[in-house]
């Protein structure tokens, strides 16, 4: 299904953002690709290509925002990231569309030998949003870390579909996806990890943790591991929980009122993912947002 959206994006391609790091170049300053939609009813299809040549390193931020726009619009983005041998890309993807927007985003990553890729995907907006994240480890000893956080309220639906494919031995991957769902919102996580026969000595872990704040909110989570190789370490888990009465009481017994106690516990749940973001100004802004969010 998501291939249709990718094809649609490609069909309307007129220009693209390209970040190309030559061999061994390490860029200290984060590079920010800001996609800002300001036109009512727009269909926006941004395209980005990031190539980190061998030994290069970059911190990348992509943000999807909406200025003052209150009306509905549609974003259909595709970002391709190629991390060649021993390169390193740290990618923060902030989806902060307005509450009426529809957002479909695809991130496709290819990693060479010893290449490192980190994704911090934060979903804050959109009435309906989906992030398709695909990582292909083409070289051995590649290291992939995927962190995801969706903060959901109202009638929002946010869907994360991820795929990690190990195509060489000694690959590593760590994935932590968190979702907080309030009101009548709906969070979906489908995380697939594929370990074919060639990918011996793979070390992968995947954890989906979800917090339900209302009796009408809904979480669907589905870890999906397909393991053919016979000498691998693959852990996975999924939890769905509510705020514990005892936790709230502990905070109340220290003078914090029940409303603030719940806020603090929600913040504590969310901040683990936010803390992964290496850009201090961005991290601080998101922490401030998570702290005050009802």
């Amino acid at each position: 299904m998501d291939e249709v959206f990718t094809a649609l994006n490609t069909a309307s391609l007129t220009d693209a953002a390209i970040v190309w790091l030559p061999k061994n170049l390490s860029v200290e300053t984060p590079i920010h690709l800001a996609y800002i939609t300001t036109v009512k009813g727009a269909i926006v299809q941004p395209r980005a290509l990031v190539v980190a040549e061998s030994g290069s390193q970059v911190t990348l931020v992509e943000s999807f925002t909406h200025g003052d726009l209150k009306d509905t619009y549609f974003t259909n983005s595709v970002t391709e990231v190629v991390v060649l041998d021993n390169g390193s890309v740290n990618h923060s993807r902030i989806q902060w569309e307005n509450p009426k927007a529809i957002h479909v985003g695809k991130t496709v990553v290819t990693q060479g030998r010893d290449a490192r890729y980190v994704c911090n995907a934060i979903s804050l907006g959109g009435s309906l949003s989906r992030h398709n994240l695909e990582v292909h480890q083409q070289g051995s000893q590649a290291d992939t870390q995927l962190y995801g956080l969706s903060l959901l309220a109202g009638d929002r639906t946010a869907d994360t579909h991820s795929l990690i494919v190990f195509n060489q031995p000694h690959g590593m991957a760590k994935q932590l996806n968190k979702c907080i769902a309030d009101d009548r919102s709906h969070g979906v996580f489908n995380g697939r990890i594929y370990v074919p026969k060639i990918a011996q000595e793979t070390d992968a872990s995947q954890l989906s943790r979800n917090l339900l704040l209302s009796s009408k909110a809904r979480i669907d989570t589905k870890p999906e591991l397909e393991i053919v190789a016979d000498n691998v370490k693959c852990a996975h888990g999924a939890t769905v929980s509510q705020l514990e009465e005892d936790e709230v009481f502990y905070l109340q017994s220290r003078g914090i009122d029940a409303i603030d106690a719940r806020k603090l516990l929600k913040f504590a749940f969310a901040v683990e993912v936010i803390n992964q973001i290496p850009v201090v100004s961005l991290r601080d802004r998101l922490i401030a947002l998570a702290r005050t969010k009802d």
Binding site: L251, L264, L265, A268, A270, E272
Partner: peptide
């Protein structure tokens, strides 16, 4: 049994 609040 004091509660743990990771993140705070």
């Amino acid at each position: 049994y004091p509660m743990a609040i990771p993140g705070v």
